[in-house]
Amino acid sequence: MPFATNKAVHLAYDVSGSGPDLLLIAGTSADRGLWTQVRPALNERFRTIAFDNRDSGASAASPGDYVIRDLVDDTVAVLDAAGSERAHVLGHSLGGVIAQELALAHPDRVASLTLANSWARRDTYVTSVFELAKDLSRSIADDALRLRAIYFMALGVTTLRSLPLAGIVEQVLAAGPAQSRQAVVRQWQIDLDADTLERLPAIKASTHVLWSTGDKLLPEPHGRDLVRGIPNATETVLEGIGHAPMIEDPAAFTAAVLGFLDGR
């Protein structure tokens, strides 16, 4: 497995498919496995580059606290290591915030932006959710119980009615060891610190905003903030899906992503 390096932090990544470059950025407490169900279809039209953020997956744990700019620098290190001068960027949740900051700091590296279930500024509701998730991550020692709590918040009602929550968590844990509690807490703190709202008009990349009507973590106003704030942004609303549309309805998510990217 190849690694990129940013200031001694090693970042696991992989490349597959062929075509224009498409960078995939996962969000809080997620790794490259987030894209498993949609990546084969994306690979048919794009050379996809996926990586694990620091404190996630096979990437190194952070040596200490960090800020969103460190995650942007990690992302640039991955692009450099993968030989990508300019890429379409698809970011989910916190990955969408990283993508926004990347487009603001390095506009020459971003061919387009797709922001899935992301935000620009948290309100009181989202602050409460993020603080609860951070406190649960800090206080619950049992990995399975902690993941059940987080997945309950993240997944939509339709998904939770059709799949047992404990079974979902068992599959996640079977795929690899859970993040350390310290690592997850650091990532939730990044969520609490993130704010791009006033700078959105400076984003020049062609942007696609996807949000889901069943998203309990980041409900409708946050997708609307991005659509209103980024000049000429395209909007897609995914009906009845929760915070993880690439898992809950891969076909609808893939169709929306490719529908925007076709011709760009």
Rank of each mutant, 00 (worst) to 15 (best):
H88I: 08
L163H: 05
L24H: 04
Q182F: 07
F152V: 09
S112P: 15
A244F: 03
P221E: 06
M153L: 15
A61Y: 15
G19D: 04
T36C: 08
L136G: 08
R224W: 08
D70R: 01
F253S: 07
L258R: 06
P219E: 00
L22R: 01
L115Y: 13
L210R: 00
L145Q: 07
N232H: 12
P245L: 02
P40W: 04
L115A: 13
L160R: 00
Y125L: 11
R138C: 05
L258I: 09
S180Q: 12
P164M: 09
V185Q: 14
G33L: 06
T124L: 08
P20L: 02
L24Q: 05
I203F: 11
A178Q: 01
W35E: 02
E101W: 15
R32F: 13
G223N: 03
G33K: 05
G214N: 01
F3K: 10
A202D: 11
P231H: 04
D108Y: 02
R161P: 11
M1K: 00
H106Y: 14
T196Y: 01
W188N: 01
S206M: 10
A205F: 09
Y13P: 07
A183W: 06
N43C: 14
T207P: 03
R148A: 00
A133G: 14
G19N: 04
T75R: 04
D108T: 14
G259L: 07
P221D: 05
D262S: 12
H106F: 14
G240P: 04
I25E: 10
G229Q: 06
S56P: 09
A99S: 14
L210N: 01
L71S: 02
G176H: 00
F3C: 08
D70A: 05
W119A: 03
R122G: 11
R138D: 15
G83T: 07
R45W: 09
E198T: 02
E101L: 14
V38M: 03
I98Y: 00
S212M: 09
R186S: 06
L113W: 13
E85L: 14
L218R: 07
I25Q: 08
E101H: 15
E198N: 00
V185M: 14
T28E: 02
A244W: 04
I190C: 10
A82V: 11
A103E: 12
T213N: 05
E220A: 12
S16A: 12
H10I: 04
R121A: 15
V209R: 01
L34G: 02
K134P: 08
P40E: 11
T127E: 02
K134L: 12
I49T: 04
E170V: 06
G167K: 05
V97N: 10
P245C: 02
A105W: 07
P40Q: 10
Q179T: 08
